[in-house]
Write a protein that binds this DNA or RNA. Structure first.
Length: 467
RNA sequence: GGCGACGUGGCCAAGUGGAAAGGCAAGGGUCUGCAAAACCCUGAUCACGGGUUCAAAUCCCGUCGUCGCCUCCA
């Protein structure tokens, strides 16, 4: 079996065949940094992190570029409202997003380019497009001439005629065609601007991504990612610009993640139904969000509500349950249970890989991990020894942590200091129980739960863990 | 109005032609002083209506519903 990947361009799953052996060139559209990012942005970032981790697991070197759009109408408008410099505003949100990426355990991209750092490249691209009649300058603006590219619309499956018929776009007298889009935009006084052959101005939204691709990855790339909301016009226009200039197919695979749905609608700033990443991380383990993404198809809309969040948290607990140590007693495990665990390990790895090879079917892959969890827990109940159990636990951690990016062992930095005190209380409770002081010992247990500590009594004594 | 996606048990969902994965929740059981955790057991014919096929959740047509895009958007 070989890796398959769904390509929006062809609307089907295709075998992944990269431009260069064992290397994947992947570009993902990042956020426009004018406000706090929400969990929908996080979903997108997580999706491509998971793709990347799996490809690396399979031996590819992934060159991963994610951009920040740091100059744009929205940035300028918001900065004016706040009375701050637009570039400072962007900088602030880039820093914040970078910290979220880290908190979400997303592997750092190879490069994080910004629109404002690509101005010379953008200008030379626009000049090239004008030279070849794909673009035209008017009064300090430069527009791309959509009629000049006969396959314009191939990604989104639209025809120019249809688009114009139902177009809800402003009529701009300067444009030859209402669908023409801006490559370079003249700036008003006080706005961020750069000198150009067409006067002071700034780049249009679409051209920056084309420029960053060209600069950091080259004329052709393997995977271009982003949300489904970017298919049109953003990615359509990127294709038009880039291919007009290079005369080569741009991205081999166009990959789009579904939108996070919140109370029936796409979560977006314009709808106003936002949960920011910051708010989410305040209340939940970062892995909760990753678990939500993993439990669904990356291409479909993802439901986001309190119940689903709680389910994801339970899912994490379940995975973690398999990492508890063995508790062998006098009756040793049978050969049968040892064999059964070994068989489960083989089945798990195989099933996991098969699912992931099928267009990154993470929900299917996760199903196989849960089967392994059950196998491990069964083996523990069957008194298997720790070294046999560990082999299966290592496999679970390899797949869940290294490949899917979950963190099953929690970092207990601050709370580690509390451990000796909790141990003390557990010992105190043990003595109470020995004297059958059930009421007091139960009270102690209940109060520890309120502090976030779960006690579990077993025949070998009491263990505790953070909730 | 145009383009596209989707509709699987209470919830989240995998599966896209040959006996309905997995998780959460629920009920029953084992264990336990009681809990918790773990383990075992229990439940769906796949929106609806036609059609193709030996065989359909899976293909085709229609209906209803939901969502995305067509303007900024991950």
């Amino acid at each position: 079996m070989a890796q398959t990947i769904y390509n929006t361009l062809t609307r089907q799953k295709e075998p992944l065949e990269t431009l260069y052996p064992d290397i994947v060139l992947m570009y993902v559209c990042g956020p426009t940094v004018y406000d706090k990012a929400h969990v929908g942005h996080a979903m997108s970032t997580l999706v491509y992190d998971i793709l990347r981790r799996y490809l690396e697991y399979r031996g590819y070197e992934v060159k991963h570029v994610m951009n920040y759009t740091d100059v744009d109408d929205k940035v300028i408008i918001r900065a004016n409202e706040l009375g701050v410099d637009p570039l400072d505003l962007a900088e602030e949100h880039i820093k914040e997003y970078a910290s979220h990426i880290k908190a979400l355990n997303v592997l750092p991209a190879t490069v994080y380019p910004r629109a404002t750092q690509e101005i010379p490249k953008i200008i030379s691209m626009v000049e090239g497009l004008i030279d070849r009649d794909y673009a035209y300058p008017v009064d300090g603006d430069v527009f791309y001439r959509v009629a000049s590219k006969d396959d314009y619309g191939k990604l989104s499956g639209r025809k120019l005629d249809d688009m114009q018929a139902g177009a809800r776009i402003d009529v701009n007298e300067l444009k030859e065609n209402p669908m023409d889009f801006v490559l370079w935009k003249s700036s008003k006084p006080g706005e961020p601007s750069w000198d150009s052959p067409w006067g002071l101005g700034r780049p249009g939204w679409h051209i920056e991504c084309s420029a960053m691709n060209l600069h950091h990855l080259g004329e052709q790339i393997d995977i271009h990612g982003g949300g489904t909301d970017l298919i049109f016009p953003h990615h359509e226009n990127e294709i038009a610009q880039t291919e007009s200039l290079t005369r080569k197919p741009f991205a081999r695979y166009w990959v789009h993640n579904g939108m996070l749905q919140f109370s029936g609608d796409k979560m977006s700033k314009s709808v106003g139904n936002i949960v920011t990443i910051e708010e989410f991380l305040d209340q939940h383990d970062a892995d909760t969000l990753r678990m939500m993404v993993l439990n669904a198809s990356y291409r479909s809309p993802l439901t986001f509500n309190d119940e689903v969040v709680a389910q994801a948290e339970s899912n994490l607990d379940r995975l973690r349950s398999a990492l508890r140590p063995a508790s062998p007693d006098e009756s040793p495990a049978t050969d049968e249970s040892l064999e059964s665990l070994k068989a489960q390990m083989v089945k798990t790895r195989q099933g996991f890989v098969e699912a992931m090879e099928d267009d990154f079917n993470t929900a299917g892959a996760l199903g196989h991990l849960f089967d392994l969890v059950r196998g491990i827990n069964q083996a523990r109940d069957a008194n298997i020894d720790q070294s046999s159990l560990s082999q299966a636990q290592v496999l679970l951690r390899e797949l869940a942590e290294d490949v899917l990016g979950l963190r099953l062992e929690r970092e207990e930095t601050e709370s580690a200091k509390a451990a000796p005190f909790i141990d003390l209380l557990v010992e105190l409770r043990r003595q109470l129980r020995e004297q059958k002081e059930w009421e007091l010992s139960d009270q102690l247990r209940d109060q520890l739960v309120e502090l976030g500590v779960l006690l579990e009594d077993s025949k070998d004594g009491t263990t505790w863990r953070w909730k």
